[in-house]
Every structure is written in C-alpha cells, then in structure tokens.
C-alpha cells in the first residue's frame, strides 16, 4: 500500500508548497521517510495564541488516506484539546471506527477526502476556539472556562517561548 500513500503524500506536499495556506508550512522532516512530517502553525490572529509559531509532528500510516495520521505538537502547549504530551485531540484525526470520547458523529471523523491541509486548518481553528467539552487537558479546559485572563497569560508565555524570546 505504501506506493499509493507515497504518491498521495507527494501530491499533498506539492500542493502545500505551491499553494500554501496562510500561516501554515508543512513537509517531510527528511525525504528519506516521507511518512513523517513537520508542520509549523502560526497562532491565529486575534486569539491568545496570536503570533506564535508552533511546531508539530505528523506521522502517517502506511495505508495513509484510508487511516488518519497522528499529530503531536513538539513544543510545550496548554490547550483544552491538546494532551500534555502534545497529541492533538480533534475528531478529524479519529478513524471512523474508534470513538474515544463517545460524542462525535461519524460525519466529523477521518475520511480519505480529508488532507493534511484540512487537518492543519482545523487545528488552527481549534487554537482559536477551544472545545472545552473534550477534556484532553482538563486543567486547561477548566482555566479556559473560569479564568480566561490567566489562560491568556500562559498562552502568551508559550508564544514567546516558540519565538525564542525571553519572557
């Protein structure tokens, strides 16, 4: 199966290079292994993550468009939908079969029609609007609900960190 996955990834890479969505760069870390990508996501403007450039790793399965990739931020993140180890919890990344949270309808899950670009764009909107129903990071979800100011302070600290600016 790796042959068709490879061609599809190559096509997606080409499209993301020729036609990059604003604030997003993605591509293989090393072309020796086309199934491991790094993506840079700019924090959406007007939100508490504004200005930051957040690196994330994408790992694709050998049967790629049939199964979703795994995504993990490689920088420190504090967000209701991101686990402490950086794994991203959004329904577009869940295979149609599994339903860890038990609330998603299958329409939002992975399908081969989705793409890296769509994943990254939904991650951008996840950064803009956390979904505090899914508790990937309970502390962050609680803070997002109850103490927005503190949440924004932490987010700004993370933004400075990703830019390499001392606090």
């Amino acid at each position: 199966m790796a042959g068709s996955a490879l061609r599809r990834l190559m096509a997606e890479y080409k499209q993301l290079t020729l036609n990059p969505p604003e604030g997003i760069i993605a591509g293989p870390i090393n072309e020796e292994n086309f199934f491991e990508w790094e993506a840079l996501i700019t924090g959406p403007e007007g939100t508490c993550f504004e200005g930051g450039v957040f690196p994330a790793k994408l790992i694709f399965p050998p049967d790629y468009p049939l199964s979703p990739p795994k995504m993990q931020f490689t920088c420190e993140m504090f967000h209701p939908n991101i686990y402490a180890d950086g794994r991203v919890c959004i329904s577009i990344l869940h295979a149609p079969g599994d339903d860890p949270m038990g609330y998603e309808s299958s329409a939002e899950r992975w399908s081969p029609v989705q793409s890296v670009e769509k994943i990254l764009l939904s991650v951008v909107s996840m950064l803009a609007e956390p979904n505090d129903e899914s508790g990937a990071n309970v502390d962050a979800a609680k803070m997002w609900r109850d103490d927005r100011e503190e949440f924004e302070k932490i987010a700004q600290k993370l933004v400075r960190k990703t830019l390499g600016i001392p606090p």
């Binding site: 499209q15 969505p21 604003e22 959004i90 577009i92 998603e104 793409s115 769509k118 939904s122």
Partner: peptide
C-alpha cells in the same frame, strides 16, 4: 452539533475538497 470548529470544514467538504476554498473560508 455544537462542536463548531468543524463547521467551516464541513461546509467546504460538501462543495469541494479543493483547498483554495477552505483557505478562503477560514
């Protein structure tokens, strides 16, 4: 569904899966 951060992707899904569209929507 109130899970609203997928709305624009869903909308784009029905029309076309071409990225130019979803970029603009976002």
């Amino acid at each position: 569904n109130s899970n609203h951060f997928f709305l624009f992707l869903d909308a784009s899904r029905y029309v076309s899966w071409l990225p130019s569209f979803s970029v603009e929507v976002s």
